[in-house]
């Protein structure tokens, strides 16, 4: 095969970067649109939508939409609720699902294959189909709290967290990852006298950074974008998450500038979380890709 001349290589590199830049722009345009228009009055925003001005910081720019968004809705409460519910669910989910996966991969017990199949089968059931039965269940569940025995979980944080902790996808991710870890590590630890808990805690989990990051990001997105479930189980404003809060801005005359400001505000935690775990997430995707 003939070697590429330095000139050809340069052209190829330039084309490759051009394509990548174009793809990046396509993905970044919605975010840019949101940010730029959050700074414009609604009339200007509507006038700009049909031109490139919609993506540029031009015209009458101010932070008024942000101020008005905070006046219209308790934005801080909604963001706090979503971050709390999402944060607790992600941590609990990683712990419970990794334990389940550990049990499926490393422990030998009767029926684990069938049970794993059943768990994986839940992946094809859309949440909407079980929302009503689940609502009926949680509305009658008991809870022992500071006020003693209470019946019904509606209008609480726990109703937004507990049903979402364990899920088939996260367990599947951990199972696949654990299967690819060298079994010699586990065997050596057991020979050295480590308990199963110690194997999980000191051998497996320290090696599971990429899958933890992937599971965390996927779970974070699911939880942060929750709409239907909180809509039907939370009637009190003090427990509402960000996506239900978005409805506050859709009045008869939609204040689009405020919508963009609100969206920009609620996107910040997602971006921060993704950037924090970006390296591990990419490492996980890359390792999956190499094997595939």
């Amino acid at each position: 095969m003939a070697a590429l001349s330095p000139g050809n290589q340069g052209v190829r590199l330039a084309v490759r970067y051009l394509v990548l830049i174009l793809i990046a722009l396509i993905f970044i345009f919605p975010l840019l649109f949101m940010l730029m228009n959050s700074l414009k009055p609604t009339e200007q925003l509507l006038a700009d939508t049909s031109s490139l001005r919609a993506f540029l910081p031009v015209g009458d720019l101010s932070l008024d939409n942000y101020v008005d968004a905070f006046k219209r809705a308790p934005v801080g409460t909604f963001v706090f609720n979503s971050v709390l519910v999402t944060g607790v669910t992600v941590i609990a989910s990683l712990f419970i699902c990794s334990l389940a996966a550990f049990s499926f991969v490393f422990l030998d017990w009767v029926g684990r294959g069938i049970l794993l199949s059943i768990i994986l089968a839940t992946l094809i059931i859309p949440f909407e189909t079980i929302a009503i039965p689940l609502l009926l269940i949680v509305s009658k569940l008991p809870w022992f709290g500071l006020n003693g025995l209470e019946i019904g979980w509606l209008n609480t944080y726990r109703v937004q967290i507990i049903p979402w902790i364990a899920d088939g996808l996260t367990i599947f991710l951990f199972v696949q990852y654990f299967k690819d870890l060298p079994s010699e590590l586990v065997e050596a630890a057991r020979v050295e006298g480590a308990s199963w808990w110690q194997v999980y805690r000191r051998v497996i989990m320290p090696l599971s950074g990429p899958v933890l990051a992937t599971g965390a990001i996927l779970k974070f997105l699911v939880m942060y974008n929750q709409y239907l479930w909180p809509l039907i189980v939370v009637q009190e404003e003090s427990y509402r998450p960000v996506m239900v809060g978005l409805g506050y801005f859709f009045q008869l005359n939609v204040a689009w500038g405020e919508v963009m400001a609100y969206l920009s505000l609620i996107t910040l935690p997602v971006l921060a979380f993704y950037l924090a775990l970006q390296r591990a997430f990419i490492a996980s995707i890359a390792s999956t890709g190499v094997k595939g």
Binding site: L135, L136, G152, V233, Q235
Partner: peptide, 10 residues
């Protein structure tokens, strides 16, 4: 929200 609350007796 109302329909869900009616189902849940709330």
């Amino acid at each position: 929200s109302v329909v869900a609350a009616a189902l849940a007796g709330n």
